[in-house]
Nucleic acid binder design. Structure first.
Lengths: 115, 115
DNA sequence: CGGTATCCTCGGAGATACTG
DNA sequence: CAGTATCTCCGAGGATACCG
């Protein structure tokens, strides 16, 4: 069972953002509406099932909006909610912080000449 | 094997911050140096093994600093690196964003009178 | 006390196939 | 095309025990 005491926003939000896909999906939806199959192509290594589950999770969290159009073949589009769009720069900031801490994973470390 | 192409800072940083403990540990170290056993007490549900692993991960990521003092019984202290301290407000911002999106998980929703 | 190794379990996540 | 169900499997993570 879940810990009854935990009412920590960060702990809660990390349940949604943790894992490989959530932040990536948010990025791919950053400024584009995408179809389910688009997201699969954007991310060739995510499985059909996981993509559906992760999108559901983000939708329930109020980060992603799902819009389905009647017809055949089916057409479903995903984009960020206003809240989702507010999240982008916050995640970005963490990405920048990381980039600053670990520039290029050190591989081309001495590429920048001393003078 | 890992995806060779992926050089996305967010994807990388999420490998470190994903999961239940990393952000919590950062919080407990927010403005206090703690011993291993302190962190276990702060967080009764983390296992001995996982705490060690997560701390190692955060240490390798340059977020947490480990200081061990010779002697018996052993004494090891953990605190945030400068980079780790810079991270705190960024994670905080995401927590606030979430809190704003999902105030109190709705339980005491109508506690605030209309007028 | 702090860390690691070993064992074992349970559920996260892939593959596949079916439905609307 | 999008989504769900079923089966399966692997590894994240708990419990325990031992070492420095």
């Amino acid at each position: 069972m879940k810990d009854l005491v935990s009412r920590c926003p960060i702990e809660e939000v990390m349940q949604v953002l943790s894992g490989r896909w959530p932040t990536l999906l948010i990025y791919y939806l950053k400024d584009e509406t995408k179809r389910f199959s688009d997201l699969r192509r954007d991310n060739p290594t995510v499985s059909h099932r996981m993509l559906a589950l992760e999108l559901r999770k983000l939708e329930n969290a109020g980060i992603v909006r799902r819009t389905s159009y009647a017809g055949y073949p089916l057409r479903v589009e995903y984009d960020l909610t206003p809240a989702g769009r507010q999240l982008v720069p916050l995640v970005d900031a963490i990405g920048d912080w990381w980039e600053d801490l670990h520039p290029l994973s050190g591989e081309v470390a001495e590429a920048r000449p001393v003078a």
